[in-house]
């Protein structure tokens, strides 16, 4: 801990207190929304108007501006959820628990969007809505993992116990996701190879790549906004008997 500057530690300690978090995110929200709108507008304009059509796929490749960022987010959010769950499990920080469960439905939605857009793209390109290809299959299994987390949280009445349960489940999932992913990949591969992460020379043109990265950032921003909103509601629900909630809402009424 002594390696971290005092101010940073203080910031995190204050953020971990629900009333402070609630007030701070309320102030933060307009800024986040502004950045999100700007990024989305720029990304969509770049992707749908400025980027040239693909020489093979024509205009239908443009679905990658939704599909690829969603697929990235589906994994990213799972990692955030597991990390937040782990923090909540170890240090018993209420806020981390709230962040973990608030992330799950958003992650599930992104996974679902990635699956749906993938199959919409697959119909004209591969001639079929669904192929049992490695990445589609592991994305589908990821969706099941998310649904398991959401289902388990809903099934346990005591929400603090439920948070612990989903943290354990999410951490088990993190160990398993690479195993599942590689086993499915090994099982069958038809999907095209990665085109963006080839570091030396991306095989995607820069006019197509920049909007894609903008969209990825805008999706991250959307996740932060949606997650914070869910977390705020969840916090209010859990702390409905706390003094700060009463103060806050009585203040507003008068």
């Amino acid at each position: 801990m002594f390696l971290i500057p005092d101010a940073v530690v203080r910031f995190f300690h204050r953020m971990a207190s629900p009333p402070h978090f609630y007030a701070f995110t309320e102030k933060l929200m307009p800024w986040l929304v502004t950045i999100f709108v700007l990024l989305t507008a720029a990304g969509l304009y770049g992707g749908l108007v400025l980027a040239p059509p693909d020489y093979q796929q024509g205009d239908s490749y443009r679905i990658i501006y939704i599909h690829v960022p969603s697929a990235w987010m589906s994994l990213f959010i799972y990692m955030v959820m597991a990390a937040a769950g782990g923090i909540g499990l170890v240090w018993r920080i209420k806020l981390a628990e709230v962040v973990a469960i608030s992330s799950a439905p958003i992650g599930a939605s992104f996974t679902f969007i990635a699956l749906v857009t993938g199959s919409l793209w697959g119909k004209p390109m591969w001639g079929t809505w669904w192929v049992w290809d490695a990445r589609l299959t592991s994305e589908l299994i990821l969706l099941f993992l998310y649904l398991g987390v959401i289902g388990l949280y809903g099934a346990i009445d005591d929400k603090r116990v439920a948070s612990k349960a989903i943290a354990i489940l999410a951490l088990v999932g993190v160990v398993n996701i690479p195993i599942i992913h590689y086993s499915v990949e090994w099982w069958n591969t038809l999907h095209q190879g990665p085109t963006v992460t080839k570091m030396d020379k991306p095989s995607i043109h820069v006019t197509m790549l920049v909007p894609l990265l903008l969209m990825a950032l805008s999706f991250k921003m959307y996740y932060v906004i949606a997650m914070l909103q869910r977390a705020r509601v969840e916090l209010l629900q859990r702390e409905r008997n706390a003094q700060w909630v009463k103060n806050r809402f009585l203040e507003k009424q008068s």
């Binding site: 649904l147 289902g151 388990l152 099934a155 354990i168 599942i180 086993s183 499915v184």
Partner: peptide
């Protein structure tokens, strides 16, 4: 172990466990 305390753990158990069984099934 996650669902033993629940009255209706059966359905949720399959949702939790079956995705994790996939690698064993494949290999």
């Amino acid at each position: 172990a996650l669902t033993v305390g629940l009255r209706r753990g059966g359905m949720i158990l399959s949702l939790l466990v079956l995705p994790l069984y996939v690698p064993v099934l494949i290999f």
